[in-house]
Design a protein around this nucleic acid. Sequence first.
DNA 1: GTCTATAGTCGGATAGAC
DNA 2: GTCTATCCGACTATAGAC
Lengths: 224, 224
Amino acid sequence: MTAPTGPSARADATRDALIEAAIIVFARDGFQAASTRAIADEASTNQALIGYHFKGKQGLYLAVFEHLVSQMRARIGERLEAVVTLAGSLDPASPDARATALTTLQGFASAMVMTLLRPETSAWSQLILREQQAPSAAFDILYSGFMDEVLGAVTQLLRVCRPDLELEEARMLVVTIMGQIMALRVARAGATRLLDWSTITPERAAAMAARINANIAALLAGKD
Amino acid sequence: MTAPTGPSARADATRDALIEAAIIVFARDGFQAASTRAIADEASTNQALIGYHFKGKQGLYLAVFEHLVSQMRARIGERLEAVVTLAGSLDPASPDARATALTTLQGFASAMVMTLLRPETSAWSQLILREQQAPSAAFDILYSGFMDEVLGAVTQLLRVCRPDLELEEARMLVVTIMGQIMALRVARAGATRLLDWSTITPERAAAMAARINANIAALLAGKD
DNA sequence: GTCTATAGTCGGATAGAC
DNA sequence: GTCTATCCGACTATAGAC
C-alpha cells in the first residue's frame, strides 16, 4: 500500500482477471467440464497461476462464489436492508401497511426480474442454478451470504399482507412466487419457444415483470 | 422375432441397461463429466459396448432423451390427449366450462407436482433442466416430443378460463404457472432450506400441490 | 509473481480376439 | 455381441527457471 501501483497491484489484477474469467467458464461449462487452461486463456494469464493464487481449481470456484455474494450485496444490499427494516415496522392490522407491503414486494420482484433477464447476469444464474441442483460448499456461501436475507425479507413482507397464513404456508407461497420470477431464467429454452421469443428484449422483460406483479397482487389478496 | 429369446434379445437387454445407467450418470454428472466407463460400470457391461450400440457417448445421450420422451408419453400420454380434446370442446362463454377447465388444470398441475417430487424422477428433471440452460439437439427431441403438447394443452385450458387475455398474455401466465410447479425441483436446495425440510415427504408434496392449486384458482379468477 | 515444462491421471474411441 | 487391451488426446497440479 505504498503507492497507487503497490507491490501487490499486479497480483490483484491477476486474481480479479482469473475470477472474472472463471465466472464465464464455470457458468458455461460447469465445474468439471471447465478447464483451468480455458479459464487462464480467458483471463489472458497463465494456467499455473490458478494454483498459485487460489490453491487449485476448487479454490478458484469458491472464490468465484464469494465474489458473487459481495457483488450482489453491493448491488442490492442497501435496498435489501431498507426492506427488512420496513417489513419489521409494518403493522399487519393496518390496511395501509398491507398496501405498502404489496407495493414494496412488487417493486422488489420487478427489480429481480429485470436483473435476472439482463444478459450479463446470465452467468450468475447458471452458477447458482447448478449449485441448487447439486449443492457443494459454494451453496453455503450463497445461502448464508445472500439468499437467506432475501427470502427472509420477502417472507416478512408477505406475512404483512397475509397474516392469516401459518409461517410454513407463507414460506410455500414465497417459493411459488420466487418460482415465477425465476421461471424465464430456469426454463428459458422452453419458455422462449412457447412465447416465440427469439430474444428477450427489455420490453418483453417488462411485460413479464408486469405479469408477475399482477399475479402477486392476486395471490396476496386471496383468502387461501 | 422367432422366439421369446430371439437373436437380439441379449443385445436389447444391453442397450436398455446402458440407457438406464446413462440416465443416472448423465443426470448426476452432466454430459461432459459423465464418463463412459462410469456408465458401463453402472450398467454392469463393457465400456466398448457404448461405441458398438450407440456409436459413441453423444449417441447414447440422444438415445436417453428419446427414451425419456417415450416414457413420459407412456405415463401421461392418454391423459394429455384427453385434456387436449376436452379443451377444444369447451365454450369459454359458459361458466360451467370455465369451472371444468379450472378443475382439469388443477388436476393436471397436481399430477405434475407429485410426479416431479417423486424421488425416481429426479434424474429426469436434472437432464431436462440442463438442456433448458444449454439446449443441444436433445432439447428438440424433448420439446417436439412432449413439452410442446403439454404447454399447448395448458394454454388452451387457461384460455377457456381467461378469454380476456391475448394469446401472448396467456402464454406468459402459463410460464408463471409452470414456474411455480417447477420451483421446488429447480430451486430445491434453497426452497428446502427456507422451509426447513430435510426431506420432501408425500405430505409435504401434497401441501405444495394444494398451495399451487389455490394459486391457480386465484390467478384464473382475477381480472388481470 | 509469473512463466515454461512436465509428471501423472483419466477420458473416449477403437482394433482385434473370442 | 461382447470383451480386453491400447492409442492418443486433454486434463490438473507442480517443480523450477526467471
